[in-house]
Amino acid sequence: MAGTTQKRWTSGNAKSRRGTEDPWYIRWILIGIAGFFAGVFLVLPLANVFGQAFAKGWQAAFGSLADPDTIAATKLTALATLVSVPLNTVFGVAAAWLIAKFEFRGKAILTTLIDLPFSVSPVVTGLVYVLLFGLRGYFGPWLDQYDIQIIFAVPGIVLATIFVTFPFVARELIPLMQAQGSDQEQAALTLGATGWQTFWHVTLPSIKWGLLYGVILCTARAVGEFGAVSVVSGHITGVTDTLPLRIEKLDKEYNSVAAFSIAALLAVLALLTLGLKTWLEHRQQRELDLAQTSSDSPDEH
C-alpha cells in the first residue's frame, strides 16, 4: 500500500541502541528468526532469479534480452509506463489539490473512488475493460465500425495500466497537502501571485518529495502490472506482450534462462525503486513534519 506516512519506527534516535532490557539470547533468537524468514522468502528467491538468469552464462542472459519479441515487450512496457505515469501524476496532483484544499459535496465519495483500484482485483479490472470495449462489449460494435481496437491491442494495455496505477500519486499527496493547509497559497495570492504562479512557486516545491515518491511507486506498479494487463492483452507475441507477460510465456515454453533474465531485469528495477523509495520516504517525512510544526510553536532559540 502507498499510504506510508506514519513515523518510521526504524529511525529511532541513536542514543537508545537497545530498545528493551531483554537478555542477549532473546534478542539474537528474534533476530535469527526474522533473518531466517527474510532469507528464505525474500533473499533466496531473489538470488535464485539471478542464478537462473545467469545459469548459462552472461552471453545467454543478455542474448535473450536482445530477442526481438522481448525487445518489443520492453518497448510496450515502456510505452504503457510513459503514458500512464504522467497522466496519473497530473491527475493525482489535481485530485489531491481538490480534496485537500477545497470543501465540496461528494468529497468523501471522490476520496473513496480514488482508492477503488486498490480494492478491486486487477483481473476484475481487466474484465471490466473487456466488457466495455471488447467486441461483444457495450462500445465494442461502435468502436469496430470505426476500426478502433482497444481490447487485445496496445490501447487496452495502456488503459488497464492507467486504471491500476491511478491512486498512487493522489494517495501520497492528499495527507501531505491536508497537513499543509492552504495558508501559504492564500499568502501568495495576497502578494499578487496568480493561481498558476502560486502552484508553481509555492505548492509544488512544498510537495515535491511526496510527489516524487508517488511517481516512483506509480512507475514500479506500471512496469510490474500483470493481472489486468494479462486479461486485456490477448498475448500476441511481439505485439501485445508486456515484460511480465513475456516472462510468463517464456517460462511456459521452458525457456528459463530468457524468462529469468527478464525477471532479473525487473528485479534490478525493483531494487533501484526500493532504494529511491527509502531515501524519498525520509525526505517526505521531513516535509510532513515541517508542515505540521512550522506555523505554530516557537521552538528553538
Binding site: 495558508d183 501559504q184 492564500q186 499568502a187 516545491p205 508542515a291 512550522s294 506555523s295
Partner: peptide
C-alpha cells in the same frame, strides 16, 4: 494589500 496570516503562512521552502 498586505496580509499577515494568523499562523504567518511563511513559505517553508
Amino acid at each position: 494589500i498586505g496580509f499577515v496570516f494568523q499562523g504567518y503562512a511563511l513559505f517553508k521552502t
